[in-house]
Amino acid sequence: MRRKGYWPFLIPGVLASVLVIVVPLVMTVYTSFTKWNGVGEQRWIGFDNYTRLFDDSLFWSSFGNIVLLILAMAVVPTLLGLFLAAVLFDYVAKKFSSRWASLFRSGFYLPQVIPVAVTGIVWGWILHPEYGALNRILDTIGLGSLAHNWLGEPGSALYSVMGIMIWVQLGYPIVMFMAGLQRVDPELYEAADLDGATWWQRFRKITVYLIRPEFYVVLVTTTIAALKIFGPIFVLTGGGPSNATLVPSYFAYKNFFEKAQVGYGSAISTVLTVLIIALSIVFLRLQNRAERKA
């Protein structure tokens, strides 16, 4: 039986979404074609903000930094997480006990539940040049010469942030992949064992193959999270030193609320939005194609 007349239930959701999402989105896109300081008159300037953007070396370096952050937030955690999930699920749970496996899983997941501001405090403190624990540890084990201002020097700031983001992200793929592995028929593994397959062969041919859906989901969500990154940058480095860790969202924030260049900030966030949506479409296509092949 075809059900009819349900549209009134959509009214609150549609009204609220128009107010909070559609109208602001349209306003930002419009503003990106104007010059505006946020209070005075808004002046239409066509594509000027965009041409300025493409000549702005800060804009390009902020995207260069994002590429490295995608490496740290999406690629490395996904690959490392895939390997760790397979070891935990297929080795630790079987040769020790599943309690050990879930203990490890919870431990690795812990950094994910901590608010980003607290991550900033924890790592800002550990990497602090004067009283930070990392420099003290290096001193204690006789590597004092390596000690330096991790987040405060342009040469090391971005790499430090990358290391921290691997720490933050690692738990998410592990949890996702371990859940995905539960779908795998244990007989497949037993059959592979009987055929004399090594652990590594099983990992490559069975594990990786069967959890491709989770693999795509994790890669897409973490890549988008990397493109949107704001909080960790704000609390760890403020985009510095000398813009070494600047990212698009923080660049937009600075233009909105520090420089009162609202039109320019809107252009930056519009470009970022287009990029995220385009990337999501590409990922969805790839995923669909992979599923059709399977």
């Binding site: 989105l25 306003m27 930002t28 503003t31 937009a252 924030y253 519009t270 970022l272």
Partner: peptide
Amino acid sequence: FLVFFLVANLLPQEVLVYPLYFL
């Protein structure tokens, strides 16, 4: 509608923040 809600999920908050602040 579903495409709309999916896209709404993807939007970075930066693209909404200034109008929301203003409004």
